[in-house]
């Protein structure tokens, strides 16, 4: 409810403000924090914005970059074993795109690739010394395939819908297994295949409450965490035994 109110308020501000005319593109999220709580089973992220001229809008949600190691299996003595591995240094932990029209109608190959619009344009370079271009492509495709299978790279381009011809909205779904971290939501305004304006707004995906406390405790005080885990188990085992002896 709060989120809808906030969105409505935002829309009202965007629509009513003639001062914004100087800016070709304004957009904001209904909420900059996705809180992973105990009952977390995924979340929707809503983006609202306005443009001051005709054009296409593309929105990209990117997770924080991290290092990813990939393995390839081959058969050794009849058993499938990891025999090769490759390290990608900078891999976005999450990637999703929304666009007002199919990407290839919005802009040419060059523009899409420069701004990393669309899954096939995400930059995932391997050191050239380690992999020739066609080998690198196999690893890259495998990485995209695996991330897509985990729902972390969304293969379906979501719609950017216009309300009137100036206001637009886009909605993204973050799955339950979404990685935590600082995300970036990039909004682009294009016209006739040329980039007119761009804006980036942050999105934080973070564990909150009990989840965060347990995680931080495990990370920062592993020894104490281990002792407490054992104590809980001892008490639980004893309780179970006592409860059933009485009955």
């Amino acid at each position: 409810m709060g989120r809808i109110l906030a969105s409505v308020a935002l829309l009202a501000v965007l629509a009513a403000s003639p001062l914004r005319a100087a800016e070709p593109l304004v957009a904001d999220l209904s909420d900059h924090l996705v809180a992973i709580t105990t009952g977390f089973s995924g979340a929707d992220v809503l983006l609202f914005g306005a443009t001051d001229q005709e054009g296409d809008v593309v929105v990209v949600v990117r997770g924080a970059s991290r290092r990813v190691i990939m393995h390839r299996k081959s058969r050794v003595l009849g058993v499938w074993v990891n025999t090769a591995s490759m390290t990608f240094d900078r891999v976005p932990s999450f990637y999703a795109v929304a666009a007002s029209r199919p990407l290839d109608l919005i802009a040419g190959e060059q523009v899409l690739s420069r701004h990393e619009l669309g899954l096939e344009n995400v930059r995932l370079d391997l050191p050239r010394a380690k992999a020739s271009p066609n080998v690198a492509k196999q690893w890259r495709d495998a990485l995209l395939r695996n991330q897509a299978k985990a729902n972390l790279y969304q293969t379906v381009i979501r719609p950017v819908s216009f309300l009137g011809n100036r206001l637009f909205r886009a909605e993204f779904h973050l799955p339950a297994n979404v990685p935590t971290g600082a995300y970036q939501v990039q909004v682009y305004l294009l016209h006739d295949g040329r980039m007119i304006s761009a804006q980036t707004t942050p999105l934080i995906v973070s564990k909150i409450g009990l989840q965060a406390e347990v995680y931080d405790f495990a990370q920062n005080q592993g020894a104490l965490y281990g002792v407490i885990a054992i104590l809980i188990a001892l008490v639980a085992g004893w309780l179970g035994n006592v409860a059933f002896r009485r009955s």
Binding site: G222, G226, V227, A233, A236
Partner: peptide, 21 residues
Amino acid sequence: TFLQAYANQTVDVILALLLLS
């Protein structure tokens, strides 16, 4: 349990509690 929690941070007490109950 102690060593995995200390060295690898791979003990999930919430998961363990649910399983053991």
